[in-house]
Structure formats: C-alpha cells, structure tokens
Simulated scan of single mutants.
Amino acid sequence: MDPADFYTGIVAELYGPLKSVSQDPEPYAAVIQQAGLPALELGCGDGEPLLGLRRQGLDVDGVDSSADMLERLRRQADELDIRVTVFQQRMEALNLPRRYRTIFLAGPTFTLLPDDATALAALRGIRAHLAEGGTVLVPLFTPEPTPAEQIGRVRTASAPDGAELRVSVVAEQRDETARTQTTLLRYERHHGSDSTVEERPWVLHWYPLGQFEKLATSAGLAVTAITDLQGTPTSADTPDLVHFKLQAT
C-alpha cells in the first residue's frame, strides 16, 4: 500500500462524507455532457476520475497543488496511453490558458481551503476561468468532531517493501466561530531498525449555506441548485456531502 493512500484512507474513515465520494467517472461525465466542454477538474490528485473521463475522449484538464500527486497521475496516464493536460497550481491562484464550460471538484477539496478569504480567492479564480453559460460543481460538507474513542487509536497496514505503516489521531481542535476543525495525525513507518514518525495537521473549513452564497455572490457566481451527485435536489443542512451548482451572474 502506498503511504499516501494509507494516510488518505484514514482521513476518509474519519470523515464519513469523504468515503462516499464517487471516483466513478460516469456521474461527472453526465455533468459535463449537460454543461458542456471543455471541462476542468480542480484538485485532480493522482487521476481519478480525470483519467476515466479522458479515456472516454472528453476534453478535460486537471489542476492540483501537489507535484507528487501529478507525477503519479502522469505515470498512470503513460501506462494507460492516455493524453492528459494538467497544471500544478493552487486553487486560490488559478492562472490557466483557457476557459471552461464545466469546472468541477470530484471531492470536498474546497473544505481544505483554510478560511473565507482563501475560499473567495478560489471562487474568483473559478469565475475568471468559466466560459459564458458555464457551470461549476462544488461539493461541500460539515465535518463531525472525531469521536473520543478514535483519539489515540492506531491503524496499521503493510507497505509493498514490508514496512509497517501506522496512523493515529493525536489531537483535535474545533473552532465553531472560525468554522475550522484541525485534526493532528501521526504517521509512522517502521522497517527493521529504521523508523520515521511525522505529524500532519488536517484542517477542514466548512460553510453554512448563507455564507457560501455570500462568497459566491462576491465572486460573481450564484448558487442555482443544491443536489446529490446524481443531481437529485437535497438540503444543504444534511451532514452528508452535497453538491452546489453555480453559474455566473
């Protein structure tokens, strides 16, 4: 198991809506077919569902801030003989060569933006790259506090080289006023006499409906629908992942 996959998997286990994110390209292909091409996936990571969409011949670019994740994406694309265009940029500092009819996130990466100012910068960048009549899809959720019994619990897995991987929640802080939750995760890798221990903060920032709508309006966007991934109308008050559809005002 890749250490990054193990770390991400533990985070997904802690935050239920992350586990429900579909990496199946079909729901996103349906969104793109309705909203139009070209399309842009924000936070494309190591290639799901981007590579599946490209395999279908859809004109979809990708953006991610992680050079490591994009390198993994490129390796997979080469192995699958898929041509793909990706950019290493932060979501709040987009500067791309063209505009898109569809801009989407395939997971709640927007909640990783640390505050409203950064979120507003990201939304303004999205607006600047949205073609006339285009659609934006932003998944959001409100994280639940980590249960007390999860604090200190160690999860283990084995790496391909035989190393033992361990991840545990060390501590968590939640600020209802700032709408942030910071979970400190300890990652350990033990292989014979060699050991590596690293602690990583995982910060989530959530948005009540009114606040997200205010940010979108400031960026020149309007919320036109709140749905599940299949497009069924739902409530923004649910603790599950919901998808905000936006269009330019």
Rank of each mutant, 00 (worst) to 15 (best):
G220Y: 04
G125Y: 07
D237R: 13
G220N: 05
D228Q: 02
G125R: 05
V197N: 01
A106L: 08
T102L: 07
V138F: 02
G107A: 14
L18V: 02
T109A: 13
Y7F: 15
L50R: 03
L165C: 09
A121D: 11
L18P: 00
L80V: 04
V138L: 14
E41M: 10
L37M: 13
L246Y: 04
V154K: 10
G45L: 04
T85V: 14
L123G: 02
Y100F: 11
L246M: 08
Y187V: 03
E71A: 15
D24K: 11
G125P: 07
T146A: 06
E199M: 02
E198S: 05
S193W: 11
A216S: 13
L18E: 09
R127Q: 14
P201S: 03
H129P: 04
A77K: 03
D68W: 09
L184N: 01
I32C: 10
G62F: 03
F110H: 07
A219H: 02
A29G: 08
Q33R: 15
C44R: 02
P208F: 05
G134P: 01
E71H: 10
A159E: 15
N95S: 15
W202M: 09
T224G: 08
L204S: 01
E13N: 10
S168E: 14
F141K: 01
H243Y: 15
S195E: 13
T85G: 01
L18A: 04
A157T: 10
V170W: 02
G125H: 06
P25G: 11
V203H: 06
T8L: 15
T238L: 12
D240G: 07
M1L: 13
A29S: 11
Y100Q: 05
P160G: 06
N95V: 11
S65R: 13
R98D: 05
R200T: 14
L204Y: 01
P160W: 10
G52T: 07
Q89W: 06
S20L: 14
Q88N: 10
Q89Y: 06
S20V: 12
P97F: 12
V31R: 15
A35T: 06
T217V: 11
R90K: 13
Q88I: 03
R72W: 06
P49L: 10
V60D: 08
E48D: 15
Q150A: 14
E198N: 04
F141N: 01
Y187E: 08
